[in-house]
């Protein structure tokens, strides 16, 4: 019995490790391949000037989803939908200086405390759908609207080793979770 518990514990730890790594893969699709419910929501905002609108089917481990990407008021947006077209969240790429100073400081204090060095690569505001789909989408398009979370890709160095993580911080800069991201490989361009 003890052996079985031990084995189950090891299996559970291994699966947790597997889940904590980002394994995202995107494939470009046409508008017709998007769930109709997702297109219906986007159509309600037709009067907005969404530029370079593209659609993707995304897998992240076992999770499958659809994404609409576009540029609006100089910000890159990605709107994620479930397989049946239900809005999951809206992510908006922002610059560091667009973050409230207090949030920025809280995030930097956390990273300084936990790593030897770090570099913020990509900052996104995340607006989660809380049931009122249109309202969530509308809010994400506003300027200066407080998001639910900040999703940040950070390159870090710790004990002479280099990693890339995707961090999730709340609106005040409190750490929520992190997962490892595969490092970009450049060697095939260098050698």
């Amino acid at each position: 019995m003890k052996k079985l518990t031990f084995l189950l514990l090891i299996l559970f730890s291994l699966s947790s490790i597997a889940q904590s790594k980002k394994k995202e893969k995107e494939a470009r699709i046409s508008q017709n391949e998007m769930p109709p419910k997702a297109i219906q929501l986007l159509d309600k905002f037709n009067e907005k000037e969404f530029k370079e609108k593209t659609y993707f089917f995304e897998t992240d481990g076992n999770k499958k989803s659809y994404e609409a990407k576009f540029i609006y008021k100089k910000h890159a947006y990605s709107v994620e939908f479930s397989e049946d077209g239900k809005l999951q969240d809206v992510e908006k790429v922002i610059r560091k200086k667009e973050m409230p100073t207090s949030t920025q400081e809280a995030i930097e204090v956390y990273l300084e405390k936990n790593f030897d060095a770090f570099k913020l690569e990509k900052i996104q505001e995340q607006f989660k759908d809380k049931g009122k789909t249109e309202k969530t989408f509308q809010e994400s398009l506003q300027q200066n609207e407080t998001p639910d979370n900040y999703e940040i890709i950070v390159q870090v160095r710790k004990n002479q080793q280099y990693f890339v993580y995707e961090f999730l911080f709340d609106a005040f800069g409190n750490f929520k979770k992190k997962r490892k991201v595969d490092k970009n490989s450049y060697d095939y361009l260098i050698f």
Partner: peptide
């Protein structure tokens, strides 16, 4: 034909 070996340490290797 080249093989590039990279991990989380600062060191990486390339053979061709």
């Amino acid at each position: 034909v080249s093989v590039n070996i990279q991990n989380e340490t600062p060191w990486s290797y390339s053979f061709g």
